[in-house]
Write a protein that binds this DNA or RNA. Structure first.
Lengths: 159, 159
DNA sequence: GTCAGTGCAAAAGATTTGCATGCGA
DNA sequence: TCGCATGCAAATCTTTTGCACTGAC
């Protein structure tokens, strides 16, 4: 989905909630949607300040919370401790992450087989699953072969 | 493994590193090993204070870091944001967690089928996996059926 | 004109660190 | 005795909140 389309969804969400559209909110949302996936608050704040230097940290946090509540952003906690955010696709299929421990690249993937297995395991343990999270950590092909590689890797890979 | 056996491993690890055995370290380690799994620092601090009221927060953190470095404790970050620690079994098989969103019970499980699937997915994406983490969130049988149930559920379930 | 939104600073919560003192080896 | 370990308080770091001012509607 384009940044423009996402912005329209954001503006619509604001209207639906009777919230105001402001220059700051727009700047933060636009930078967020245009950013590489999985930004930390710090990274987002830095990028926003380059566009609009008077924006405060608190507004970035507040707008990120707003985007989360509108279903336009998702918060992720990876093992390094710091929270990261990613833009959510419309009707997005839940997906998982595989992370290169050398270059930091994060690749998204979805596996129906994995989901079925999770259901099965949960049922065996007496649980009904509502959500899950899985992360694989390792080394990507680019790093193993000494290539530079792109840290950007778009979209969810169906595996 | 018993608390006693774990304490012996701890004392040995201290000696190997040329570190001192102190009353505080022993108290914290003993309470940690005896505690239910997945304690937060706050919970551990509270429990240690009941045994030894003069211990400081900093010492709990420092000892927990030490236990981690000795391979006797593992740090886990679940989705609620706060870090939790669990005692590590000797030659422990990596395992995953399923968490009841109603009563907070955490059940550990290990699945070879899951591991094989993870390997397969990673290979497909060009990665070599070194570790992983998976959490399932849902509602346990006890909660669904209005039973009280035990929050303790020992050991890793092979599924 | 109203009142939600913003920036700033202060607060809050989690964790780490500096330092004088204590205590294990 | 010597130096690591401790307790305390202060410093960090991340995130939230209070408040007076601003600006969207």
């Amino acid at each position: 989905m384009s940044v423009r389309a996402r912005m329209q969804r954001f503006e619509q969400a604001l209207r639906e909630r009777g919230l105001k559209s402001t220059a700051q909110r727009d700047d933060i949302a636009r930078v967020f949607f245009a950013a590489r996936e999985h930004v930390s608050v710090e990274e987002l704040y830095g990028a926003v300040r380059r566009v609009s230097p008077r924006v405060g940290y608190a507004t970035v946090y507040r707008t990120l919370r707003l985007l989360k509540e509108c279903g336009l952003a998702a918060e992720r906690h990876f093992d390094d401790g710091q929270a990261r955010y990613e833009a959510v696709e419309e009707q997005e299929h839940p997906h998982d992450h595989i992370i290169c421990e050398r270059c930091g690249k994060i690749v998204e993937f979805a596996s129906e087989e994995l989901e079925r297995l999770q259901e099965r395991i949960a049922r065996f343990l007496g649980f009904v699953v509502s959500r899950h999270r899985m992360e694989l950590y390792g080394v990507c092909a680019d790093c193993r072969e000494g290539r530079r590689g792109s840290r950007r890797e778009h979209g969810v890979h169906q595996v």
